[in-house]
Design a protein around this nucleic acid. Structure first.
Lengths: 195, 195
DNA sequence: GAATAATTTTAATCTGGATTAAAATAATGC
DNA sequence: GCATTATTTTAATCCAGATTAAAATTATTC
């Protein structure tokens, strides 16, 4: 009855559920996935999901929080390890794509933020905006250290993040494609940044 | 009772409805928009929409067909007017963005293809794939005529089309931003293509 | 300006999937 | 192994929003 974050079993199953849900949402759309679809992947009954989550809205919310975490962690690491602005951009893309297309994926596309309840929606929007702003500041840093040619960082950020966010729309788990994405996407997306 | 495509009134109102629906779907998500939301924009009752469309699924389907048309027309024009591969890519992006952010917009993001009924889904997928393939062939042509550096056209296509498809997610109708998008996006997205 | 057709509204019904409560089963601690 | 707690299922209910039928209104035709 009393579940804690420390409860391994519970947390593991919840994690599996979030990944299953992310996959469904990405592949079938939000309205197109019923709780039964998610439950089927886990070999459970739809009602069982309510043991882990209050309702469908919260399921989406948690998927989005997870997506936010993955993005932030990838960016943290890139900033920690990168040499200059351009190098950080490339690392960020690589790290993020690596998670998106790898074992810890899939990561949910944030398509349904508006249908979250107000507190959740605001929280996710904050996270999302902060992430975008952080990316723009990396671009700015690159411009200042000379690794990136001067550009409109807002628009450039929108372009690169858009291409990144769209990946789950067409990537369907093929390992060979995953390798290709992780390898080539960062290069493709950053090629235009060089001075 | 008998409405034809030639019926101006009917077609005009239907067009307005599709644009209102596209806006709702982009801003509020599919499940987040009720037919009442769409009807409110038009100053109508939700039930009135059924005069123009069989059901909500068809409304989405028609939005997607329209999106497909706009994409195809933009590409047609770019191919007709462009000098070489790179020039066609840039024109295509400009023309498409111009419509997306202009008076004829907004254009619906194809987020909910999977929840269309099979015939509609297949039709939209065909259109979507054909468009992607056509874009890749433009990249290929650019590589062959020397205007574009050799690259993985599949991945490069995915990257550019992703950035493009994501635009309606953050663009909210501001005219100044629209001008900036149309002006800068094609450049940003194609900068990395040059040899 | 009747008569006919087009458009919209009113006022219901209908429905699929979300949600819930209670019971059943599985796991764990002692 | 018994008692307790964790997890899942069964079997209903619930409900927002889609859909429909009939009536009302508005436009068009002649």
């Amino acid at each position: 009855m009393a579940r804690q974050a420390s409860d391994t079993r519970f947390e593991l199953q919840k994690g599996r559920m979030l990944r299953a849900a992310a996959r469904c949402f990405n592949e079938k759309g939000y309205s197109g996935t019923s709780l039964k679809d998610v439950a089927d992947i886990l070999g459970l009954t739809d009602a069982a999901l309510y043991y882990y989550v209050k309702n469908k809205e919260e399921l989406v919310y948690l998927c989005y929080l997870r997506a936010g975490d993955v993005g932030r962690e990838s960016m943290d690491r890139a900033i920690r390890e990168g040499r200059d602005g351009l190098d950080i951009v490339r690392r960020y893309l690589r790290y993020h794509l690596d998670v998106m297309t790898g074992e810890r994926g899939p990561i949910a596309i944030m398509s349904e933020i508006p249908s979250l309840k107000p507190e959740h929606r605001d929280r996710v929007l904050d996270i999302s905006r902060a992430h975008g702003a952080r990316f723009e500041s990396i671009l700015q840093r690159g411009i200042e250290d000379g690794s990136i040619a001067p550009c409109n960082v807002r628009m450039t950020g929108n372009a690169i993040m858009g291409a990144l966010n769209w990946v789950p729309k067409w990537f369907r788990g093929d390992a060979a494609v995953a390798a290709s994405v992780v390898e080539e996407f960062p290069q493709i997306l950053s090629a235009g940044l060089e001075p």
